[in-house]
C-alpha cells in the first residue's frame, strides 16, 4: 500500500527577476485507498501544489520534502516521478500536434509498465476504457488534445488515469469547465479507479459540485499557500454553505448558485 508524504513544502515561482513564494509549508499524507479533497479559492496555490509534486520546471522547491513510499520524489525527473507511480490530471492538458492519441497512450503505457503492452490486449483495453468514458473511438487517431473541447480533454485525462494505474493520482480541477453530463461521466471514471482501493487520490477543486459524485474521506481547506483546516466531508458542506470567507476574509462562494 502506497503513501505519499508531503512535509513542510515551500515552493516559489520564478518571475522575470524575482522569485515569489506560493506554497508556505504544506503538510499532507495520502495513503492508497484514500481520497483527499483540496479545496480553496482562486490563487490559493492549489495548482502550484500539483505542479510542484509532478516536477514542473517553473516551480522551485525551496524547502520541505515529498516522498512516495519513502523514495525522494523531489530528486526524480518528471518522467521518473510518473514511472514511480505519480499521476497528474492537468487542469489545462497540452496539445501535441502530429502525435496521435493512440501512439501517445501506447508510448506512455510502455514507459510506465516497463514493457510494451501486448498489442492485441492493448487495443481491447484502450477500446473498453474509451467506451467507459463515452469517448468516440475516432479520437484515437487524432492528435493529442488538439482541437478537443474542454470536456473532451478532461475525459482523456481520466482515460490516461485509468490506463496508467498510478499509485497516487492528483486531479487538478478536473471538474472545471465540465457540463453536468460530462461531470457525471468523468466522476464515474474516477470512481471506477477509486473502487480498486489501490490508488490514493488528491482531488483539487474550487467547487463542492464534484464532491456530490465523488465522496472524499478528507477535506482540506487551502488558503495562502498552505492547509488551514482539515476535516471530513462535513467540511465541504460548510464551504458549500458559507464559501471561503472564514478563511480568506472575503466573499468567494464554493458552490455554484
Amino acid at each position: 500500500m502506497s503513501t505519499l508524504e508531503i512535509k513542510g513544502l515551500h515552493v516559489s515561482v520564478a518571475t522575470d527577476e524575482t522569485s515569489k513564494e506560493i506554497l508556505s509549508g504544506v503538510d499532507l499524507t495520502i495513503r492508497a485507498g484514500e481520497t483527499h479533497a483540496i479545496m480553496g479559492p482562486n490563487g490559493s496555490g492549489k495548482s502550484t501544489l500539483s505542479y510542484a509534486i509532478a516536477g514542473h520546471p517553473k516551480y522551485e522547491v525551496t524547502s520541505g520534502e515529498v516522498t512516495l513510499d519513502g523514495e525522494d520524489v523531489l530528486a526524480m525527473s518528471v518522467d521518473e516521478r510518473a514511472r514511480a507511480g505519480l499521476f497528474l490530471a492537468m487542469q489545462y492538458p497540452v496539445e501535441v500536434p502530429g502525435v496521435s492519441m493512440s501512439n501517445f497512450l501506447r508510448t506512455a503505457a510502455t514507459a510506465v509498465r516497463g514493457e510494451a503492452p501486448k498489442l492485441r490486449h492493448w487495443v481491447k483495453e484502450v477500446k473498453e476504457a474509451m467506451a467507459e468514458l463515452d469517448i468516440d473511438p475516432a479520437f484515437a487517431e487524432r492528435s493529442v488534445n488538439e482541437g478537443f473541447s474542454g470536456g473532451e480533454k478532461k475525459r482523456h485525462e481520466i482515460l490516461q488515469l485509468a490506463l496508467l494505474q498510478p499509485k497516487i493520482a492528483i486531479l487538478d480541477e478536473t471538474d472545471s469547465g465540465l457540463d453536468v453530463d460530462a461531470l457525471r461521466v468523468v466522476s464515474e471514471g474516477i470512481n471506477r479507479v477509486k473502487a480498486g482501493g489501490e490508488v490514493g487520490i488528491m482531488l483539487i477543486t474550487h467547487y463542492t459540485r464534484i464532491l456530490r459524485h465523488i465522496t472524499p474521506d478528507f477535506v482540506h481547506v487551502f488558503a495562502g499557500g498552505r492547509i488551514v483546516e482539515s476535516g471530513g466531508s462535513e467540511l465541504a458542506d460548510q464551504l458549500e454553505e458559507h464559501g471561503y470567507v472564514r478563511f480568506t476574509g472575503k466573499q468567494e462562494p464554493a458552490a455554484i448558485g
Partner: peptide, 22 residues
C-alpha cells in the same frame, strides 16, 4: 509539450523525438 509527455512517464529523449516527429 515536453512536460506533458514526461508527466506520463515518457523519458525526455523519447518525448523530444515524438514532438519533432509530430
Amino acid at each position: 509539450q515536453l512536460f506533458y509527455l514526461q508527466a506520463r512517464g515518457i523519458p525526455e529523449g523519447v518525448a523530444r523525438r515524438l514532438v519533432v516527429r509530430g
